[in-house]
Design a protein around this nucleic acid. Sequence first.
DNA 1: TTGTAAGCGTTATCAT
DNA 2: ATGATAACGCTTACAA
Lengths: 335, 335
Amino acid sequence: MPSIKDVAKLAGVSVSTVSRVINESEDVDERTRATVLDAIKKLDYKPSFVAKGLRGKSGNLIGLVVPESMEHAFTSIINYTIEVAYKKGFNVILGNTHNDPDIEEKFIDDLLRRNVDGILFSRVSDESRVLHKIGKTKVPIVIIDRTLDKEGIPGVVLNNYKAGSLAAKHLCELGHNKIACITGPLNIALCRERLRGFKDVLKENNIEFNDDCVYEGNFKYISGIEAVRHFRANNFEFTAIWAQNDMMALGVLRELLLKGIRVPQDISVMGMDDIGFGQMMVPSLTSIHYPFREMCEKAIDLLITQKEQEEVENKMIVLEPNLVVRDSTGQPFHQ
Amino acid sequence: MPSIKDVAKLAGVSVSTVSRVINESEDVDERTRATVLDAIKKLDYKPSFVAKGLRGKSGNLIGLVVPESMEHAFTSIINYTIEVAYKKGFNVILGNTHNDPDIEEKFIDDLLRRNVDGILFSRVSDESRVLHKIGKTKVPIVIIDRTLDKEGIPGVVLNNYKAGSLAAKHLCELGHNKIACITGPLNIALCRERLRGFKDVLKENNIEFNDDCVYEGNFKYISGIEAVRHFRANNFEFTAIWAQNDMMALGVLRELLLKGIRVPQDISVMGMDDIGFGQMMVPSLTSIHYPFREMCEKAIDLLITQKEQEEVENKMIVLEPNLVVRDSTGQPFHQ
DNA sequence: TTGTAAGCGTTATCAT
DNA sequence: ATGATAACGCTTACAA
């Protein structure tokens, strides 16, 4: 790879002049600029991001930290992030913490050691202990998806309370009154929020909903299956069930179908996230749409803003979910 | 972030001594080493990857280039790559070329400008024109998944001919003789290979299989749906169908089920890749297992070997696929 | 308008 | 065993 020196030599100017041309400075003679550009083209010169990053300037690099990457929601976040980042001229270093706080900490260290321009951060759980570490540096951070209210850190999150409410509202409007729910891990704040929204609306509609109606899953497919078995083992009969993500809803769907239970005629099933696979099922899955793309766009914007304005007012952007009705929900049979 | 200078100052030694301690050089007094380690701990000092990278040494960074990232096969590759890379002490910059050769070229440039230790590369199609560019540098490259035989570049690929053969063999053994196939884009070599293997085995079994039995898809879900419609519009009746990836097979499955066609009683459906979702369908999807994790492990090993041994003999590792029988295939009804 | 030189955080060479 | 110093490729005062 040719360096700025090679260009300078070939163009017969100093390196600073080349630097000026690269950085589109005004103070450079048109003819020298032409000569330099010519040399750049001849050598196919591309400035080193490494040197740029070392000098203190931006290295056009951001880090994305996710707690797992096989879960489809995070797959979406990863994809949109690299797409949006690319358009804004940034490369992305991706790290999967596998829900392990130690890996999380080590990976954040890696990012800091790379002098990244910012970090998009989706924490493992409420117990994450890396924020203060980042706080001590100048590196901007934006929390995505998983947050804690009390921390004054910029972020982009979903209105999870609303998500729960929408789910409950939909099922109530269809006429269900025996309703089950599968949550994600309850040490993650957003799961508690979703459940709160869900409960509140059921209460408004005078529908009985106690702890027996709730199964705490882990956001994975298998949780959906286990939940159905759990409820059946406990003789809890329901006509509708909401899972706090689509993966678990898919598990529910399969388990019910294999048991010969019809969806939605016997039981209505709904999920949340609106991952692509939901539409591919038979029946297709009713869900709550999570605007992942918008989240990534806003998050990167927030990152750039922070970088530029030294100190940004602690902004928390809240996105709104919305209901997507498909084939897996319907009126209860006996009504 | 503290620098090596800060450590040197606090420990009362020179930067070179600190460097020696960091790099576990033998030639350093035990007491000074202790002092330095103490200072490092006090300051929570972590060496900058950027400076290391600049100096010419490895920056512990590799690039991963995929042609698309929503396709589940690449999701697997991404996940396994970052996982394996992490374990070996590397960070990964991820780029999605969106099947666009221009983006591909620009992204490779980005990686070279970052002085990466190596590039894992899955090309857009046979037309990719970036290999010579990388070839001119010292940066090791390993091709994954998509290759061209003629190029003497190290890589890890699947035995795609075998994959096609296995699929055909399975359907033949079940007794099918009216068989359809949905391929990926035929300007990608591996699709042609898969088709060749498929055809050869059918021929061995004296099963008629001409161009009317083939539909060229694009690896996406929608292709599966379109293929079914295409075959039905052309009055081509078949009792079994193989799609060259699971996503298209899922499309086939849904379209058939919605039309009231039973799987596998009326038509057997099989895919390839063995993505997780295949097991979640009702019926679960028979597929050809693609050892993605092994591919990523081998690829990273190959990258590291190249980096160390200056010039590696051009090695092409070929992985073997295997059949996974599930519920979506069975004997033809009229037999 | 252009060039010189210092500095970013390392490692490597050469002295001591 | 340790310390100065040059070098990696770039940006940026400061000088000319």
